[in-house]
Amino acid sequence: MTTSPKDTSEAASPALRGSDDASHWWRIIAIWAVLSVAFDVVWLNVVGPHVPPGRMSDTANGAAFDFNVLIVMAVPVMIAIWVYMVYAVVMWRAGRGGPDPIGGERARGNNRVVTGWITITTVVVLFLAGFGTYELVQPEGAGGGQGPTPLWTPASHNVLQVQVIGQQWKWTYRFPSFGGFETNTLEIPDNTTIAFHVTSLDVIHSFWAYQLGVKADANPGQDNVAFTTPTQLGSFTVRCSELCGLWHGSMFNTGRVVTPLAFNAWATSTEHQLAANTAVLAPFAYTYTPDANGADGGYYPDTADPYSPVEQYGATQPAGQ
């Protein structure tokens, strides 16, 4: 049964009940279903494939998937509220000279509506909480820093270790499996799991390889491990996402995902090219105590607690210290 706006001003209210109101319910549900399905289909086919951070790695893919799931779950809830609100305004608005739409028996609670609303929203929220928690740790920590002893580690034994060193205000990268050379440029092979060991030589930075979906804080004296497996060739942007001083805004560079063959060629040639510099670098370690210039948490120069890496990782004491 359809009801005109005029007679519903007396007969209906937000708390729907009775057989006359069933048609309102079905109409609202139908409008909601059509709009929700239309939105979700359009989103998943038009917008979804392009949501950030993209599909360059398994972790980026996971982040984009999570974003799409949250959108297609949350927007129908929003549409339900809007549809009900607009429907109520159109169908049940007070007419001129009509009775006050607020108050009376119809304005009282409706147990079915309340129970249904609480049940549906509870199910949605609990599902998203469980889904979000699961996705937060899959795959292998979802690209987030897990500290020095990661809980979620890759099953593969073919993991490339890459150390990321933040310092005011640049990123450098060390490759322990290639002699420990340290370079300004970051190249990694596709279809290979990468373990980023993120640390800092001074203040807190944050390593954000945007298109890889990797983000891990760089803390001095800490080895913060984040995993990812690149799945597409191309360039990605590395930025510092922790305000770290005057030149924080320019603390970025560009990395590349290349084929394993190209990576090996690059790493081997770079190892050879930088051999003279690698020879004077501190031996590779997961954290450093770079106090040669007073960076041990004190003020420059820190003479009270001089550079003493020997106990830390067997490095040679710099001359004159």
Binding site: Q168, Y299, Y300
Partner: peptide, 19 residues
């Protein structure tokens, strides 16, 4: 910039003239 933390008397040597 200079990358040597040469700001004498500043935390980590990166304040003052380095900033």
């Amino acid at each position: 910039q200079c990358f040597v933390p040469c700001g004498l008397g500043w935390l980590y040597g990166n304040g003052g003239p380095m900033g």
